[in-house]
Design a protein around this nucleic acid. Sequence first.
DNA 1: ATAGGGTTAG
Length: 524
Amino acid sequence: MALPAGEGVVSYNAAISRCARAGLYARALALFREMRGRGLRADEYTLPPLLNSAALMRGPPPAAVAALHALLLHAGLALHLHVANALVDAYARLPRAGCAAAAAARAVFDEMPRRDVVTWTSLLTGLARAGAHAAAVRAYHGMVAAGVQPDEFAVAAVLSSCAGSTMLDVGRSVHATAVRLGLGPFRSVGNSLVSMYAKTGALRDARAVFDAMPARCTITWTALIVGYAQNGRGRRSLEVYADMVRSGCRPDYVTFIGLLFACSHAGLVDAGRAHFRSMVADYGIAPGPDHYACMVDLLGRAGRLDEAMDLLNRSSTELDATVWKSLLGACRVHRNAELAERAAEMVWRLDPTDAVPYVMLSNLYSRARRWGDVARIRALMKARGVTKEPGCSWVGVNGVTHLFHVEDRGHPRAAEIYRKVEEMTERIRGEGYVPDTDWALQDEAPEGRQRGLAYHSERLAVAFGLLAVPAAAPIRVFKNLRVCGDCHTAIKMVAKVYGREIILRDANCFHHMKGGECSCGDYW
DNA sequence: ATAGGGTTAG
C-alpha cells in the first residue's frame, strides 16, 4: 500500500483520491498517515477526498472528521471553498451522529465567508439525509434568497425533499424554476420530478414528465414503477416494467424492489413469484432483505404465511428488521398472534427500542379483545422506555400546511371542523357506518372509544379538507403513521357521500378514495 | 489531482 520513497504531494493526492473514489476509505486514510510520516503536508487537494473517506468509512471513529477539521484549520485551508464544502458535507454525512454532526455542519456553513451552490447543496442533502425535509426545502429557499442560482444537482435534491415532505405546491414551483433556468433536459431533474409528482399523489403530472423526457434510464423507469405502485396502480407498474424491458433498459436491484412492491400492493401473487425468480435467473441479482420484505407482504396478503416463513427460512441473505416488520403486518391482517410474537421478538433482537412491534402487537390483541395481552405489551413498552411517535395528519391548502393531532382543538377553525366531523359521522351512519371500536385504545370507556375514533387526526384533517379545499379538487391528506382501520372505512364512505376524491397517504401507502372504493383494496 | 444530486423506504 505504500508509495515508493521520494514520491511527492501530487502523487499522494492522486492515490488518495483514487482510493476514495473506489470506496477504499480506510486505505485513503492510511495513505495520508504515510504521507505525513514522510514529512509531506496536506494541501487543498488532499483534504476533500480525505474528508469524504472519513465520513463514509464503515464503523468510523466519529472523531476522524473532527480530527481532519482541526488539521485543516491549522494548515490554513479552512477558507478554501472546495475544502470547506467537503467539510460541510462530511459532517452532514456522519451516520447516527444526528444533531451534533448536523450542528457541526451548520456551524462550518455559517462561518464560511463565501458559499456557492455546492455549499448549499451539501447542507440541503445533509438535512434531507437526516429526514429534515422541510428544513432542506428552507435551505433551498435560503440559497435562492442569497442570490445563488440553483443547478441540476440542487434542483434534483430539493425536489426529493419536496417529495419527502409532500410539498406538492413547492415542487411545482421548483419545476417551473428549473424549466426557466434551462435545467429541464437533465435526466436527474426529470427523475426527481417523476418521483416527486408520484409521491405527492399527482400521477398525471408524473406521467407527463416521464413522457416528455428526452432520455430515460433505470432510475427513471424505477421511479414511475414505484409511483404507480404507491398510488394503488400495481398493474400499471407491471405494464411500465414490460415497456422498460422492451426499451432495452436493464432493471436493477432497486427496480425489483419497486416491482415486487407493486405486485404486493396489487395482490398479484403469481406475478410477484415470477419476478422474484426472474430477478435471479435472468438478471443475476441476489435478493436482499428489501426483496424478502416485499415477498412477505405479497404472500402475507394472500394469506400464505407458511410460504412466507418457508421463503425466509431458505433465504441466503441476512434478514433485517424490515422483513420481520412485514411479517408482523401480515400477522396483523390475518390476526395470527403467535407468529406475530415471534416476528416481534426478531425485530427486538435487532432493536428493542423500535416502537412498531409494540404498536402492532397491541393493535392485534386489541382487535382480538385480549385486553390482558394489550396491557402486557404496554407495560413491556413502558418498562423498556419505548415511546411511539404521536400520530398526526396534515393537509395543505394554498401553500399552508394544517396539522392535526388526535382530538386536537388548536386550529383557529376548530369549532367549525368539529361540527363538520359530527356532520360526517351522521351522514355516513345513514349509509350504514358502524364504528369499529376495536381500533380504539382499550383503556377508554366504550363511548369514549367511539368519540376517540371520530376525532382521530386523519378525520380532523379530512373535515378541514371538506371545508377548505375547492369542491373540484381532490383532498390530499397525509398521515405519519398507518391509517386506522375504522378511519379507513369512514373516510371511504365520506368520499362517497360527499362526492369527493380523497387521497390519503399514510406511512405505508396511498389511499385514493372515490365512490366508496379505495385503491389499496382494503389491504395495507 | 480536490467538493454536491436523481430511483427503494420503514
